[in-house]
Every structure is written in structure tokens, then in C-alpha cells.
């Protein structure tokens, strides 16, 4: 009896460190998705390709003996260029954003296979990854936690800084109200191009770290990345109200990404036998739908009255 009760607890305890480390690594992608989806108001599918691109480029370069820092930077630049490509399709050729992203994703699928030397996967065992030294000194888990954590916090910090600057604020205005932005002298096309570049560079960085933590890449490792990113964003926003300061929203996204990993890992552990790793996409989609539905039903009314109150207050003051 006691043992039976303990089983779920042990399960939680077992999956926790690994899930948190995974959550940190994936949170960099999630922040990239947050930037395109929430700040620019563009659902950008290219991350499916750029996440993998970060991994494949890093793996290919590590294999030929390039230092890990260079390998990661080149991977991130690759993601940046792909993001810029999507944005140009969208802003200059006026192709709808969703389709632009899908086209880039398709192109990258072929490119990723070529980057891996026409293979579908590549093992990184024995290569000098960012985590390797630390993993040898401690354990792979601890190394992933520390490296992932540092990159996640750096990404949150850098995003907070960037979107607080004059330039970053003009990006936020572009996503929020492009007409107003142009009327205020903001080159909205330019902002979209640069920012989709940044968000895809983050996706690539995330993929690069995941490849190193798994010691393995596959050309299709980005499959589902958009949904995983969105899940983190949506979970994060479920706890952080939109009116809270920007820093909280970013931390919410980080927390959402970690939480998502824990939920998935627990679901797989506890429902072992019913669900397999193949069901992850199903669980993710159901999770997103559930959170969005809950938000829709719970938040609608109070938000409205709130806004009316403020307007009424202001009006009352004018009388």
C-alpha cells in the first residue's frame, strides 16, 4: 500500500532533474517562439527547421574538429539567416507568414540532411561538447542542468534588455500595431526581418545545446518544435498575467518551458504502458488546447470589467 503511494512520488523525483535540464535547454527555443508569436504577432514555422539546423551544424562542425564555441555560433548564425529568409518572403514577397515559415522549414529539411553528410543522424559521443568537461567532473545530468540553466538565464536577461531599449520597443510596437509603428517612423519590414532572425538564432542555439546534451542529432529533431515552443509560451502565460511587467512574462516563459518538460515526463512515466514517446505530440497539443480553453473561459469576464473600471475612473476624474 505504502509502496504504491510512493511510486508516483519516486517517479516525480526521478524525472525532475532531467526534465528541468531539458526545460532549460528548450526554453531558449520557447523564448524564440515567444518573440515571434507574442511580440511580433507572427506564427513562424521556420523554427522547426532552424532548431534542427542549430543541431546539425554544431554536430557537423564538431565532427571535423571545430571548437565548440565556433560550432555553436555558426549554428546560431545559420538560424539567423534562415529567419531573415522567412521574413523576406513575408515582408517583401508578401507571402503569408505561415506559408513563408513552412517553405523555410521544407528547405531546411533538405539542407539539414546535407549538413549531416547525407545522413539522417549523427552521433556526437566522444566529441568535445560544451557539457563534456563538466559531465566528466560531475555527471551528465548536472552538466546539462548547469549549462542549460546558464544559457536560459542569459537568454531571458538579454531579451529583457533588448526589448527595453528604444530599438527593442520599436519592435514591440511593430508587432502590436504596425500602422502606428510606421506612422511613428518605424521601418516595420526591417524590424520583422531582424527580429525573426533573432528568434530563429535562438531556436538554433537551443537545438545546438540539445544535440550536445543528447550526444546525438537527427535531421528531423526539429519536428514538433513549434508546438513545444508554443506549449511553453502558453503554459507560462497561464500563470503570468499579461499586464505584469515584461520581465515576469519572460520568466513565465522560462518556467512554462520547464513545467512543460516535467508534465510530459510525468505523463510518460505514470501512464507507462498507455502512452509511449510517440504520444508526446498528442499530449502536447491536448495540453495547449486545455490551457487555452481554460484561459478563454476563466479570464474573459474579469478582464473586461477591469478595463471598464479604469476607463470609468478616468472619466469620473474628468467630470
Amino acid at each position: 500500500m505504502l509502496l504504491q503511494l510512493c511510486a508516483p512520488l519516486t517517479a516525480v523525483f526521478n524525472v525532475l532533474p532531467g526534465s528541468i535540464a531539458d526545460g532549460f535547454i528548450w526554453s531558449i527555443l520557447t523564448i524564440g517562439v515567444f518573440i515571434s508569436y507574442k511580440i511580433l504577432n507572427i506564427a513562424d514555422m521556420s523554427v522547426e527547421g532552424t532548431f534542427a539546423l542549430g543541431g546539425t551544424v554544431t554536430a557537423a562542425l564538431l565532427t571535423i574538429g571545430v571548437p565548440v564555441s565556433v560550432a555553436m555560433i555558426v549554428g546560431a548564425i545559420g538560424g539567423f539567416i534562415a529567419g531573415v529568409f522567412t521574413a523576406i518572403l513575408h515582408t517583401k514577397l508578401k507571402i503569408p507568414a505561415i506559408l513563408s515559415g513552412i517553405l523555410t522549414m521544407f528547405i531546411l529539411y533538405s539542407i539539414n540532411i546535407h549538413v549531416l553528410g547525407n545522413k539522417a543522424s549523427l552521433a556526437l559521443l566522444g566529441r568535445i561538447t560544451l557539457m563534456r568537461k563538466l559531465a566528466e567532473a560531475t555527471s551528465p545530468m548536472v552538466a546539462n542542468l548547469i549549462v542549460g540553466g546558464i544559457f536560459a538565464l542569459l537568454t531571458v536577461g538579454a531579451s529583457y534588455w533588448f526589448f527595453g531599449t528604444k530599438y527593442g520597443s520599436s519592435v514591440r510596437a511593430t508587432g502590436c500595431n504596425p500602422e502606428m509603428a510606421r506612422a511613428q517612423g518605424i521601418n516595420t519590414d526591417g524590424r520583422i526581418i531582424l527580429t525573426l532572425g533573432i528568434s530563429n538564432a535562438l531556436a538554433a542555439l537551443s537545438g545546438s545545446l540539445l544535440a550536445q546534451s543528447n550526444n546525438n542529432v537527427t535531421a528531423n529533431m526539429g519536428s514538433g518544435a513549434i508546438v513545444i515552443g508554443l506549449a511553453g509560451v502558453v503554459l507560462g502565460e497561464a500563470f503570468v498575467k499579461e499586464k505584469w511587467p515584461f520581465a515576469f512574462r519572460l520568466i513565465g516563459v522560462l518556467a512554462g518551458s520547464v513545467l512543460y518538460r516535467i508534465v510530459i515526463a510525468l505523463a510518460l512515466q505514470l501512464l507507462n504502458g498507455f502512452l509511449t514517446a510517440d504520444d508526446m505530440k498528442l499530449i502536447s497539443a491536448v495540453l495547449i488546447i486545455a490551457v487555452l480553453a481554460a484561459k478563454r473561459f476563466s479570464a474573459k469576464r474579469p478582464l473586461k470589467t477591469k478595463s471598464n473600471n479604469l476607463s470609468e475612473n478616468l472619466n469620473a476624474e474628468n467630470k
Partner: peptide, 15 residues
Amino acid sequence: AIAKMRGKKRGLGWN
């Protein structure tokens, strides 16, 4: 702040 910068170069200073 965004309007205040209209016609000027928006840099990396705090908004």
C-alpha cells in the same frame, strides 16, 4: 517614448 523618437535613430539606449 516611441513618439518622442519619431524621425530619430532608435538605438540601444533604454526606452
